[in-house]
Amino acid sequence: MIPGFEIGVLTFGEISPDPATGMMPSPHTRMTEVLEQAVLADQVGLDAFGVGEHHRSDFVISAPPVVLAAIAQRTSHVRLFSGVTVLSSEDPVRVFQNFATVDLLSGGRAEIIAGRGSFLESFPLFGYDLADYADLYREKLDALLSIREFNPSTWPGSRHTRDLRGLDVAPRPVGDLPIWVGVGGTVASAVRAGHLGLPLALGLLLGPADSLAPAAELYRRAAVEAGHDVSGLRVSVGAHGYVGASSQSARDIMYPSFRVGMMENNHQRGAGFPLPRAAFDAQASAAGALLVGSSQEVIDKLMSYRAAYGATRVVFQIGYGGMSQAEHLAAIERIGTEVAPVLRRETVGSAA
């Protein structure tokens, strides 16, 4: 059976100046806004709400499970995910325990998206060597999966993880605690997710709308080779976006903050990324990666994502760079009331 089509939203909790006023929100204000966004997402019937993990002063969320635990107490059905958990610099035991706790608090709604991490500040902060970047992720993902499957643990340890054999790792989640593999373009990670039979979460930034489709295809091919049931595989595609009252107003609202975000919040590997308006508008076109426009325009692009990727979930990253809370909430409401119902109706019983 092909999984249904889900719609979610994601925030990094940026602390950026308002493009219009220049005012900088306090960390408390931004955290309060994140909770308000999650509550609205739940109220308008969205399927998932996620928060990113960053360890810099221009982001408010360094501990996603703590934030998701607070959200769990104010929501009733929306699934709660990390986008992403930087597993390479985390302790897999604590990752499991923290998200199992969120799962218990939420009645089985927690999900982990485990990624390598494109923002690199957590590695020196927690004493890891970037030379071990790939090995850290591979070994810790194996450990996390083993912890989820067996208790007492049977994990024998590896170069970057300790021997956990015979140890009780608690608490245990309500259900199976989904673990997705987050991929931003590293094909090897997509292939490995397929071999493991894990759900795949693709993160688009800029470029062609179908630029990661080859990774999705290799993911499915690897899953077939490993003997997994491809019909049950889940693929999520996440992209920056905004849904406005019209195509033009959506672009006019999103561009000022997104330009700030790309320049001021996107310097994890050096300098920021200048984004002229013409380049932004090209990315907002049908061929570009951004999910920005009127409700119908965004619906059309989401359907193209479903066709190109076999996507079972699409996640909007909204507000990057200091968008006002009123505009952020307006987009969430439109996604829930104008976009999601159409997508669900159009995809019921359809093949990915």
Rank of each mutant, 00 (worst) to 15 (best):
R162Y: 06
Q325T: 05
P171R: 01
H267V: 05
D42H: 07
A143E: 08
E139H: 09
R221G: 09
R220N: 12
P178W: 11
R79Q: 14
L167A: 05
P25A: 08
S285W: 15
V9T: 15
G117D: 14
A278Y: 02
S88R: 06
S189F: 05
D281L: 11
S350A: 11
R251Y: 01
G322Y: 06
V315Y: 10
R344K: 12
P124I: 12
V183Y: 04
R251F: 02
I2T: 13
G83T: 15
S16W: 01
T347I: 05
T101M: 12
R269D: 12
G270V: 07
T347N: 12
F49N: 07
G197H: 03
E53L: 03
A190D: 06
S76C: 03
H55P: 00
D163C: 01
L167V: 04
P256R: 08
G336K: 10
I71S: 11
P64Y: 00
V348K: 14
P199C: 12
S89V: 14
H55N: 10
E33F: 07
L204G: 03
V191C: 08
P152W: 05
A239T: 11
G115Q: 11
G261I: 03
S106M: 01
S153Q: 05
S153P: 03
L10W: 04
V315I: 15
D42F: 09
S304C: 14
V342E: 14
H328Y: 15
L46F: 12
T347V: 05
G336W: 10
L136D: 01
M24K: 11
R259F: 00
G194N: 06
D176N: 13
N151K: 04
G241F: 02
G321A: 09
A100C: 10
G336S: 13
A201H: 15
R74F: 05
D132R: 04
V44L: 08
L35E: 02
V66Q: 08
A308S: 15
N265K: 04
Y128D: 08
I299R: 09
H55I: 10
I112W: 11
L80Y: 10
G319A: 04
L343Y: 05
H328Q: 13
G227I: 06
Y137P: 01
F126T: 15
V102W: 02
A250S: 13
G157H: 15
G288E: 14
G108D: 08
A282N: 10
G336A: 13
I318S: 09
E14V: 07
E333Y: 04
G115M: 11
N265Q: 12
L120C: 02
V169K: 03
H240R: 00
L275T: 04
R234F: 01
S189T: 13
V230R: 12
Q268T: 09
